[in-house]
Computed example of a mutant assay.
Amino acid sequence: MEKISIRSIQEKDNKALADLIRSVFEEFGSEKQGTVYSDPTTDNLFEYFRKEKALCWIAESDGIILGSCGIYPTDGLPFGCAELVKFYLSPDSRGKGIGQQLLHKAIGSARELNYTQLYLESFPEFGKAVSMYERLGFNHIDHSLGNSGHYACTIFMLKDL
């Protein structure tokens, strides 16, 4: 069994992580404007996560990035709320519990940073991820929160911590 480590994002991860994220969007036919796919910050995620109370966890094995999951204090969110962001897994990493490890790590980190809620945005194309969010206690809400700039998203969810 491969050894998987979960660690904080590093500057050297920028290109591989941007490539992984965009490949997931392409895999699901979701390469749309108004999403992470077209967001210019996707190419410099290490810098993006250098904001106070923001973090991104990377799952890797033998130097290869398998996935990521972060929390971010998106502008315009209610007090105490952060956004769950950049949760993506490579196709061969799915179904092995890696996504759950990343999500639990991000949720635990949000609690440690004294957030009281987590918000996320997604698409119907990412149905398996949405099902996982539901199992972890995220509830659907009927509108977006905050100013992520990802106006193409159609699924909005919120979890009390």
Rank of each mutant, 00 (worst) to 15 (best):
P73F: 04
G97S: 14
K15Y: 13
C69G: 11
Y115H: 01
F79T: 13
K12Q: 10
G67W: 08
L103F: 08
G108I: 09
A129D: 02
S90L: 06
H140P: 10
G76D: 03
T41S: 14
H150F: 03
L102N: 07
N147I: 10
H104F: 12
N147K: 11
S122A: 11
K32Q: 09
I6K: 03
S8C: 13
C69N: 09
V130D: 02
S5C: 12
A16Y: 08
Y37V: 05
R94D: 08
Q33A: 14
V130I: 13
I141K: 13
Y37G: 09
G127D: 11
S61F: 14
D39R: 00
C69Q: 07
S23W: 02
Y72I: 01
G67L: 10
E60M: 14
S131G: 10
G29A: 10
H150W: 05
R22D: 03
H143Y: 15
I98N: 04
L45H: 02
I64C: 13
E125M: 09
R111P: 02
G108H: 08
G34K: 00
T154A: 07
G67C: 11
P78V: 12
Y37S: 02
D160C: 11
T42V: 15
C56R: 02
L103M: 13
L20K: 07
K3G: 08
F87A: 07
R94I: 05
W57S: 04
L89H: 05
R7M: 10
L113P: 01
V85I: 13
S5V: 14
E112N: 11
S8V: 10
D19K: 14
Q10W: 03
F25T: 01
L17A: 06
C81T: 12
F49A: 02
E31F: 08
S23F: 07
Y72K: 03
G95F: 09
I6W: 05
N139W: 04
I155S: 03
Y119C: 00
P78G: 11
F126S: 02
T35H: 06
L103R: 04
Y115Q: 00
E2S: 15
F46Y: 15
S23Y: 03
A16P: 01
Y48V: 03
